[in-house]
């Protein structure tokens, strides 16, 4: 571990004793933190492998006995679970890509230009962030009805994209603003137009922030429940959260089933997370200033 740490920090002065202590502390803290984070999650995994008769006994059992995969087979076979999975994937992917694209353009304008109304427009965006989504449900539903967006997946996307714009713009603008403007000015002197500077310079520079925005937006669209419930009537257009909620009954809930379905639903989010988190590693220093 010490060796790795030193390769990672080539200039680190050799004070082995304090280095080792620091590394030990670092790992101890991380492990304790990770254990706290993961225990409730493990409990959920264990419950998903437990038959209804043994679910949620107190005190909690972490190793299911007897274990069963019946919850997973039932989750996958009752309802059109795979169709709903595909619906969610389509909606979440398209919303994420379009939202990140549109909001990074807005962030670019805010970070690199001075223009009339800049402050006001930015404040309007901020104000949008403070409105609780529950409050917007009925007006948005009426809007969707007028625009014939009800009961369709593209209709849901419009609301998911709009809903994530402010957060993403705010996030990306902050990041772009903290990046020195010299490179941009240099490209401008070279005659590059605004689109080139956005696409070729700002976007690659903002990689860590774009990765963050992608992960957040994907998760938000993937998990969204109230709008999906309200806007979709045709069962063929349902998304996954609506299907998972249907596993909760009026008088009884099969928790193993709900947890199994939820765990299946977590997989795509983790994949998106794993794919995009590697952009954190190559930060500014290696990407732009040095390269």
């Amino acid at each position: 571990m010490t060796a790795q740490l030193q390769t990672a920090r080539p200039r680190g002065r050799a004070v082995p004793a304090s280095q080792t202590a620091a590394t030990t502390f670092r790992y101890a803290a991380l492990i304790v933190g990770a254990v706290v984070m993961i225990i409730p999650f493990l409990y959920m995994v264990s419950t998903s492998f437990t038959a209804q008769a043994y679910v949620l006994t107190l005190p909690p059992q972490f190793i299911p006995n007897p274990a069963t995969i019946a919850n997973y087979t039932q989750a996958l076979t009752t309802q059109d679970f795979l169709l709903y999975f595909a619906n969610s994937l389509i909606v979440a992917l398209a919303s994420t890509v379009l939202s990140v694209l549109i909001s990074s353009m807005m962030a670019f304008a805010f970070a690199r230009y001075d223009f009339a109304g800049k402050e006001i427009i930015f404040r309007v965006l901020l104000a949008g962030l403070t409105v609780p989504a529950v409050m917007l449900l009925i007006p948005q539903f009426l809007l969707a009805k007028d625009w014939h967006l009800l009961d369709s997946l593209p209709g849901l996307m419009v609301f998911y994209i709009a809903g994530s714009l402010a957060l993403n713009t705010f996030l990306l603008r902050g990041f772009l603003a903290s990046v020195p403007g010299e490179l941009d000015q240099a490209m401008q002197v070279d005659g590059a137009n605004a689109w080139t500077r956005y696409w070729r310079l700002a976007l690659p520079l903002a990689k860590p922030a774009i990765a963050t925005a992608t992960i957040f937006t994907f998760l938000a669209s993937w998990d969204e429940y109230p709008l999906a419930l309200t806007m979709i009537n045709n069962p063929d257009h349902r998304t996954l959260p609506v299907a998972i909620a249907a596993f909760q009954g009026q008088n009884a809930t099969q928790w193993g089933l709900v947890f199994a379905a939820s765990l299946i639903a977590i997989v795509p989010v983790i994949i998106v997370f794993l794919v995009f988190q590697r952009y954190f590693v190559q930060g500014l220093t290696s990407g732009a200033v040095k390269g």
Partner: peptide, 15 residues
Amino acid sequence: FLAPGFILFLAVIIY
């Protein structure tokens, strides 16, 4: 650069 996002935002969130 602002137009596509901001128009959508005004229509779907602010309104």
